[in-house]
Amino acid sequence: MNEALWALGRASGAVSLGLFTLSVVLGILVRSGRPLLVLPRFSLALVHRNIALLAVVFLGLHVGSLLLDPLAQLRALDVVVPFVGEFKPFWQGLGTVALDLAVAIAVTSLLRRRLGPRVFRAVHWASYALWPVAMAHAVGNGTDGTSGWFLGTALAAFGAVGAAVLWRMSAGFIETARSRQESRA
């Protein structure tokens, strides 16, 4: 039973991280206002949302299974308060930070019509912090965190997010950037 919880904890963590990676890249694509191949913009927005929600579900599995697993030595306090854990407190603390951010982003996204665009946007920016923190947690805390296959995959994910962020900061990022620049020239 404990073995199963341990395996579930590790696997769900990896899946959650993968989904978060995809969600960040999709979120940047949605922000650009461009459709993707056959996917129209509103479908992309829905895919971004659903993948992010799925990532949170797997994050819940990850934390829940490790809480129940005595081997993991995870206390309820560690789930909320970072850097006070028994085992690798720093790397585990990063996971706690990522969890707190993920919860904040998910809640404000689901309630955004009530909260208004300001709060929603301000909190949503934290996604850019969430992803590297979660990745560092995976590398530093994960059993396979420093294994070759994981580092390779992590590097690929880092490349994808990094490229998306660089594109996000470029002048022609917004779909209508050119006509807008021309009008204001």
Partner: peptide, 10 residues
């Protein structure tokens, strides 16, 4: 207004 007025002015 932000983009239309400058375009008109030009």
């Amino acid at each position: 207004c932000r983009f239309g007025l400058p375009a008109l002015a030009t």
